[in-house]
């Protein structure tokens, strides 16, 4: 292996100075913005069109504020935010070549991500038993598909980090390229986190805005 080859491949200077892998991840995230933008728009359009909630299997009118458990969702949102903090620490550790610290932090991210997913599984099960299904209302369709797609993103992120964790034991996750690999995974993870902040705001929090919800026809909060 000659030095020249290393210069033309592994550390080839790019026109912009940005690594290919980092650039392509930013491009993917730009595309994913449009992806989630479309899903969130679908949800909000229908929410505005049908502000009164949904009807359960027995034909009873149900209100979304009564269905949502805002305390639980706030908790899982907080956990996901903290996982981003650990992710930042993991990226920083990898750049400094501190493998042990990287592994500790990335395990933390995985653990927090799993808690978030667990909360979502619990929430879906709970809502299903309360009578909200993907089939019985437009709200059910948009809610489950939007949050489920986000959950799939989180699950792919967790899978990716687990693979990186085990890969770190092979000795190949080193140097500039190793740091880059972890940083790119970090970009993805932070993005998925930011998307959740938006979903948490426009799908959950706005239901509790004002005396009867942002959409105007929900239950008064006092009930």
């Amino acid at each position: 292996m000659s030095q020249a080859a290393d210069a033309t491949h592994a550390h080839a200077p790019t026109s912009t100075g940005i690594d290919h892998k980092k650039l392509i991840m930013w491009l993917f995230l730009a595309s994913d913005c449009m992806f989630f933008g479309t899903l969130i728009s679908t949800h909000l359009l229908y929410r505005k069109l049908y502000p009164t909630g949904f009807t359960d299997a027995e034909g009873h009118q149900q209100f979304i504020q009564k269905l949502f458990n805002i305390e639980l969702t706030s908790f899982s949102t907080f956990i996901l935010l903290m996982s981003s903090f650990l992710m930042a620490l993991a990226v920083s550790a990898m750049h400094k070549g501190q493998l042990k610290s990287f592994r500790r932090n990335v395990l933390g991210v995985i653990f927090f991500g799993l808690i978030f997913l667990g909360c979502q599984v619990y929430e879906f099960t709970h809502f299903f038993h309360e009578g909200l299904t993907i089939q019985n209302s437009v709200f059910g369709s948009t809610f489950y598909v939007l949050t489920g797609t986000h959950g799939t993103h989180v699950a792919i992120g967790i899978l990716w980090l687990i693979l990186l964790y085990f890969y770190s034991f092979t000795g190949k996750l080193t140097g500039h390229m190793g740091g880059l690999d972890v940083e790119v995974a970090g970009l993805y993870w932070h993005f998925v986190d930011i998307v959740w902040i938006i979903i948490f705001t426009v799908v959950y929090l706005v239901e509790y805005l004002g005396p009867s919800g942002f959409w105007g026809t929900g239950l008064p909060l006092a009930q």
Binding site: L49, S137, V138, S141, V145
Partner: peptide, 29 residues
């Protein structure tokens, strides 16, 4: 392309899993 990706996912959920994104009798538009 993400817009059509989402539209196709929604249509697929309608056809294969009984969702209501575009089902006019359930309020879909």
């Amino acid at each position: 392309f993400p817009a059509i990706t989402v539209a196709l996912i929604e249509l697929m959920f309608d056809r294969q899993f009984g969702a209501n994104f575009f089902n006019p009798s359930a309020g879909g538009q």
